[in-house]
Measured scan of single mutants.
Amino acid sequence: LQLFIKTLTGKTFTVEMEPSDTIENLKAKIQDKEGIPPDQQRLIFAGKQLEDGRTLSDYNIQKESTLHLVL
């Protein structure tokens, strides 16, 4: 599923993930694309901070959802 990642600077980029992927996987993918170390990434969806060990489906993140990346 394609997700939109929006940064505080207003930049938006996309990543391609599976619902079974963990937040950790997502942070690694963001590191590949943007060079931001996972330990500096905080991801927010629907007002909640996402925890590394959980999956996208745990948070009911669907295709074309927008996640906010806070550094």
Rank of each mutant, 00 (worst) to 15 (best):
D39V: 06
V70F: 13
R42K: 12
E24W: 14
Q41D: 01
E64P: 05
P38N: 09
L1W: 13
L71M: 10
N60W: 05
L67I: 10
N60K: 08
K6D: 05
S65V: 07
N25D: 10
G53M: 08
L50E: 00
I44V: 10
E24V: 07
N25E: 15
L69M: 06
A46K: 13
G10N: 07
R54H: 15
K6H: 09
T66W: 07
T66E: 14
L8K: 15
Q40I: 12
T55E: 05
G47M: 04
P37H: 12
D32E: 13
K29E: 06
N60L: 07
K63H: 14
A46R: 11
L1T: 04
R54V: 06
L3T: 02
I30F: 01
K63L: 07
E34D: 04
T9A: 10
I36M: 06
T7E: 08
I44D: 04
T66D: 04
T66R: 05
F45I: 05
Y59N: 02
K48E: 15
D21R: 06
Y59Q: 03
D58M: 05
M17Y: 14
E18A: 13
K29G: 03
T9K: 13
T7K: 13
K33D: 04
S57N: 15
M17D: 01
N60C: 04
S57C: 03
K63M: 13
P38K: 13
E16N: 13
N60I: 04
T9S: 12
D32V: 11
G35P: 02
R42M: 11
T12K: 09
K11T: 10
I30V: 06
L43H: 01
S57Q: 14
T66F: 07
D58G: 03
L50R: 00
L56F: 08
N60A: 10
Q49S: 08
L3Q: 01
A46F: 08
A46C: 04
A28H: 15
T9I: 08
D39I: 12
D39E: 15
G10F: 04
L8T: 14
E64V: 06
V15G: 00
S65R: 04
L43P: 01
L56E: 00
R54S: 07
G35E: 04
I36G: 02
D58A: 05
Q2T: 15
V15F: 07
L43V: 05
F4P: 02
Y59C: 03
I23E: 00
K33I: 12
Q40D: 10
V70I: 07
P19R: 09
